[in-house]
Design a protein around this nucleic acid. Sequence first.
DNA 1: TCATACCGGGG
DNA 2: GTGTACGGTATGA
Length: 733
Amino acid sequence: MPDHDEWLWGWDPTPGIVSVWAEPSGHATVWRRVGGELRVEHARFRPWAVVDRIDDVRRPGLGVRELAGDGELRWLVDADDARRLAHVRDRPTTLILPPDEQYLVRSGRTYFRGLGFDDLRRMQLDLETTGLDPGRDRILMIAVRRPDGSATTIEGDEADLVRRLVAEVRAEDPDVIENHNLHGFDLPFLVQRARALGVALALGRTDEPGLRQRGARRGVTSGDGEPRIRYVAPGRELIDTLDAVVRHDFATRDLPEHGLKAVARHLGLAGADREVIAGDRIAHVYATDPERVRRYARADVEEVAGLARMLGGPAFALAQMAPRRYERLADAGPATGVIDPLLVRAYLRAGTALPLHRPGTGEPHAGAALHLFASGVAHRIVKADVASLYPSLMRTYRIGPARDRLGALLALVERLLDLRLEAKAKGRAAPAGSAERHRHEAMSAAMKLVINSAYGYLAAGALTRFSDVEAANEVTRRGREVLHLMCRELAARGVTLLEADTDGVYFAVPETWTEADERRVVDDVAALLPSGVRLELDGRYAAMLSHEPKNYALRAYDGTLVLRGVAFRSSRAEPYGVAFLRAAIDRLLVGDVPGVRTAYLASIAALRRRDLTAHDVATLVRLSRTPAAYAEQRAERRELAYEALLAESRGWEVGERVRVYRTTGGGAALARDGARDYDVDHYVRLLRTQFAARLARAFTADDFAVVFADPDQLALFTVPLETIRPILRREEG
DNA sequence: TCATACCGGGG
DNA sequence: GTGTACGGTATGA
């Protein structure tokens, strides 16, 4: 019986590894932090590869071992130097990892054994520049936060500034260098400026004068068609907090945007007196008030340090499991980046042959179920959903990759589901804010990441070694089955189904029901589901406006309004319309139809009296054409934003965002403070066609016409508003 | 109108 | 040897 914990954690107990660097020569350097002190160790390893045939492979100096089982990749070859493996490297079927991963996989070592996140020596750095283009702009200042928490800024002549940064990094000797968008901005900018200035950028722990590169999907490119890369500093881990933010937001989906300032504010990391300077004003402010820029830059590195600690735990925890460098696990996709390396290590540890990567079978992959049962307004809403539906189904029905003869993926999922519950419980038991709690929560989040991507791994086609579309289809089929069963059994117990999506369902309960009744019906249905599939009551709301699939508004029992979907939240939507929509839905969901009408009339009146500003009616447009490109298309199709810019004879840059509105007489203008010369009729029309229309499902056609009748036209046959009731209508399918 | 391509960030 | 956990927006047919 293979040891599943070895599959999960590796087996070599060596503690304190904070960085690994390996060369094709078979030489590995391992940096370990033991009792706070850094130790550098040198090790030899035999570079290896796994191949599917050895007829032309056997030659002197090459070790060959046959692996067990029926996988095609059954010959493990190794040598004292990777150059001896050159002849197998170019075969498309060969499994050959980067040297550092070869070392970690075969040694069974991983990063950070016995270390906590706070044991790392972490340093943050942030560039302030005159602009975004290193070909044209230059560095004004570099803010640095040292491992001891002190922050400083480096200024002066640019070449000198880069030299002093390098000296600072080498003197402080951090294990980790962090910043927000480090790989997307600071490092590429620094590399290009250092090259232009002829300064050596020796940021690593080896004596190399510059940085190395690795391919990375979310990296930078040096030009059209050039591959995307990220930089590597041997001996240190280059960590981008933007990666951690993106990963965090995938799980929570609660961040309004991913910029440092916004995230820091959202997570409560920003100080009340946080200095703020718009990016394009930095150079100007630096010339007039450099102290302000210093405060700003120091705040940046402080926030990055806080953010890295708050959101960097999962990557730290993953590095204790998977045989890859910490910085690779920080930006890796979970299927190819975490699970595949775990499986490869498990197979080699078990001495078992691996299957070949298979191109996509062409078998279409059927996805999740989505139903809209009813649209309009409903009250006493309950949301019930299944936690971790897909991995639960994989475990319950033993759905794993057909070619995974060891059953390693299912074994990992199973073990992680249990260990995660333990980690969650330990986290809850630890004091709030303690390092112990941080450790357990980070571990739990890392495990959740792996668990939830096990299904994505199956469906990943040619990208993952054990992918299996049939198995993935079986998971979604079971998922649809569970959702269907849930809906049927809920409906049979007297609730009104509204919308169901993948693993959750919204429904309305009868007027007489108490909260206990709601919980009971969820528990009753939960008991009918397959064991291992846990249905839970996820939320309760006073009312819901169901508009279209994935587009709805909820009113919580405390009166808070939640709007979901493009129909209700769009960055381009004119602010006056959004404000109307919120006010109208707020009234609608308490059954106050006259209030809806009042909100509508108030918006029209505000437009007509020009109480609103141009800013209120303007739409936000991102410019995607150059002035030349627009000039070419202008004869065929005119666009408001560019017309406004031309009318003001102002140039623009692609990517710029502007607020534009239609002026009296049909012209276009950029919104600016105080302007009110907007086309009232146009915006009154828009209010009805674009915004009021989103309440159409809530009324019969006749009632809708009454509620949103033109205030100037006296209807002849009209019903009193007080008698109109919002409706709920059944949808087909 | 509908599909699909692209973006998210940094000064 | 980069990578199929999304959701909004911009674009083309």
